[in-house]
Amino acid sequence: MKALIIGASGFLGGTIYYKLKNAGAEVLGTYSQHKKQDDFAELDVMDSQRLLEIVRDFAPDVIIWTVMNHDAEEEIAEKVMPALRDAIGDTRFIFISTSVAYEKNMTEDVTPFLRSDEMYNHHYFNGKIKSENVIRKMRDYCIVRPGSIYGINPYGEMDVRSCKLKEHVDLGQQYVRAGNILFSIVEVNELADAVIELATGDYVGIINVSEDKPISHYGFNKALCRRYGWDDSCVVANREIENIYYFDNSLRKRLLKTRIMSIDKS
């Protein structure tokens, strides 16, 4: 298999690259600023011409899009995705999306809604939703809606949430997290395994990938402390007004062999 990973210098993209490379696949990764591997190809994803040149020259069997650009997601959806859709033909395309709504037990057919300007991170969410609309017109695609990603990747890098928690633990500073807001999570190496399984499979459509049970922001940080052996006394619960949002994983459990474990299990 020849796999092109767009955003291979990122947290998830680098994990997928590492796993595929070590499994013997022919892999090309792209980077924008931080070059993890010498053989990575430099790419500004807003440069559609350069992107299409890489696709044409490498001729991959599968393209895995792991880019998460909070500022440019809408521009990517409007300018880049249509050009890529028109160019790749029958090439399999795996797109890492996000939660598209605030609901309990969200299935894959949940109706996305565009965020208004005053809502949190609206450019990012709206961009992913708009990209999904373009991708669904491709011939061979899979849209992965993952839980919030945590863990330590094969390069020894830790996710942003864990790093922020570690700062509070080291400084002994109180870390207040909502005990009433539930969300879905997924460990980075397990998510990468699921993406690789989907890349080599034939499922076309949308799939949720997260741990079975949602967890509160407070519970998540407590669980991280237990996992890494950190003092959790700095983590304090509060209550906030916000919608609860988490995935239904019934489809994932039917289709995939990859096991997604609870954060409290090794």
Rank of each mutant, 00 (worst) to 15 (best):
T107Q: 01
Y150A: 12
D159F: 11
I260C: 05
K253L: 04
V45L: 15
F113S: 04
I263F: 14
M158N: 00
V176G: 02
G156T: 10
R50W: 05
M1Y: 02
G10F: 06
K35W: 13
G29V: 07
I244M: 10
H34V: 14
K104T: 04
A25I: 02
R92S: 07
N105T: 00
I76T: 01
D57Q: 13
F113M: 00
E74N: 03
E73K: 03
G201Q: 05
R226M: 12
G179R: 08
E132P: 09
I64F: 07
F11G: 08
G7M: 07
V176T: 13
M46H: 13
P60A: 07
M119D: 02
A23W: 00
S210V: 08
V195K: 11
S32A: 13
L51S: 12
Y102M: 01
L51P: 10
M138A: 12
V134T: 13
K265T: 11
C163S: 06
Y124R: 08
V80W: 04
G151R: 07
I63W: 01
G172E: 08
G205D: 05
V186S: 11
S131Y: 10
G179F: 15
I215T: 11
D248Q: 12
F125E: 04
I260S: 00
D71F: 01
M46Q: 15
A101Y: 09
V144C: 10
R145L: 07
P60H: 09
G7D: 10
A223Y: 05
L28H: 02
P154W: 05
K265R: 14
Y150D: 11
Y102H: 05
K137V: 10
G24Y: 11
D39M: 11
T111Q: 02
G89P: 07
D90L: 01
T15K: 09
A199Q: 08
M68T: 02
G219E: 15
I96Y: 04
V80Q: 12
D86S: 14
G229Q: 09
N208C: 10
Q33P: 01
K19W: 03
I181Q: 13
K130I: 05
G7C: 08
R161A: 13
I263D: 00
R115T: 00
K137L: 15
Y17R: 11
N249P: 00
N22G: 07
S250L: 14
K222W: 03
D39R: 09
M119I: 03
L20Y: 03
H70C: 00
M46E: 14
K164Y: 13
R239I: 12
L12V: 13
A77W: 07
I54E: 06
